[in-house]
Amino acid sequence: VTLFVALYDYEARTEDDLSFHKGSKFQILNSSEGDWWEARSLTTGETGYIPSNYVAPV
């Protein structure tokens, strides 16, 4: 499992996005959609889309 960590805070703009804070960790579920990845937050357990340029591999 590849884990990613948030580099910045992000406020969701749609109900499909995940809001998160810098330092939040994610499991990436689908990275084939270009700049928006489907991810599960390891902090909240919620699933949604995150901007790929806001995260980096742990």
Rank of each mutant, 00 (worst) to 15 (best):
P51I: 03
V1T: 13
S31F: 15
T44S: 09
Y54F: 11
L18S: 01
L3Q: 07
S31R: 12
E11Q: 13
W37A: 02
F4D: 00
E33K: 14
R40F: 14
Y10W: 08
D35V: 09
I50V: 09
L29T: 07
S19D: 04
Y8G: 04
I28R: 03
D17C: 15
D17Y: 14
T47E: 09
Y8L: 08
Y10D: 00
I28M: 04
K22H: 05
T47C: 10
A6V: 02
I50T: 00
G34A: 14
N30A: 09
V58K: 04
D35Q: 10
T2P: 12
D35A: 10
D35E: 13
K22R: 10
T44I: 02
T2L: 13
Y10G: 00
G45S: 05
A39G: 04
T47Y: 09
V55A: 04
L29W: 06
D16L: 14
T43A: 13
G34H: 12
H21Q: 14
E15N: 12
R13W: 07
F20K: 00
K25S: 07
F26C: 03
G45M: 07
G45D: 06
T43K: 09
E46S: 07
L29D: 04
F20T: 01
T47N: 05
L42Q: 06
H21E: 13
E33I: 11
V58Y: 13
Y54T: 06
N53S: 14
G48D: 00
A56E: 11
A6L: 02
E46D: 08
N53I: 09
Y8R: 09
T14E: 09
Y8M: 09
G23N: 05
L7S: 02
D35C: 14
G23C: 06
A12I: 02
Y10H: 05
V5M: 08
Y8I: 06
P57N: 05
S32K: 11
T43I: 09
P57M: 09
E38G: 04
H21G: 09
S24M: 15
F4N: 00
Y8S: 06
G45F: 06
N30E: 08
L7R: 03
R40L: 14
G48V: 03
A56S: 09
E46Q: 12
S31L: 10
F26R: 00
D16C: 15
E15G: 13
L42V: 12
S24G: 07
N53K: 13
A56V: 14
S52D: 02
N53W: 15
Y10C: 04
N30C: 08
L3T: 09
V55S: 01
V58H: 08
E15D: 12
S24N: 14
R13D: 08
L7I: 10
G23Y: 05
E38D: 04
T14F: 15
K25V: 15
K22Y: 05
T2N: 11
G48T: 02
E11L: 10
T43F: 08
T14A: 12
S41C: 14
L3E: 09
P51A: 04
S31Y: 13
T43C: 09
S19M: 03
G23P: 00
F20S: 00
D9V: 02
T47A: 06
S31W: 13
L29R: 04
S24H: 15
V58Q: 08
V5D: 02
V5G: 02
F20D: 00
T43D: 15
R13N: 09
F4A: 07
S41M: 11
N30T: 08
S52E: 04
T43Y: 08
Y8D: 06
V1S: 12
L18T: 03
W36E: 03
